[in-house]
Amino acid sequence: MVENFNIIILVLLVVTAVISLQVKDLLSASMIFGIYSFLICLLWAEMGAVDVAFTEAAVGAGVSAVFLIATVFNTKRKSSD
């Protein structure tokens, strides 16, 4: 019953999750985490959870990315792992 659309997004989700944890530049990591949030919001919209998707688009892809970036600017941009 799972549509191909879901499978594509789920694979992309796994890829972005791994990249955002692996990349050494924290600014990139925050941005890729924003992409991850947006992808998962697409998935939820597709599943019929429009309210959740809306919240995730505003909160996950928007505000929490800003919070992460604000902290990265005020601390260090490079990470050892």
């Binding site: 429009v50 309210d51 998707a53 809306f54 919240t55 505003a58 909160v59 928007g62 505000v63 800003v66």
Partner: peptide, 21 residues
């Protein structure tokens, strides 16, 4: 329609954040 206090609040807060940025 989809929406409500949280979503609207976050967007409104984000507009102020944008002003700050």
């Amino acid at each position: 329609s989809p929406g409500g206090g949280f979503q609207g609040g976050v967007i409104l807060g984000a507009s102020f954040i944008l002003l700050g940025l």
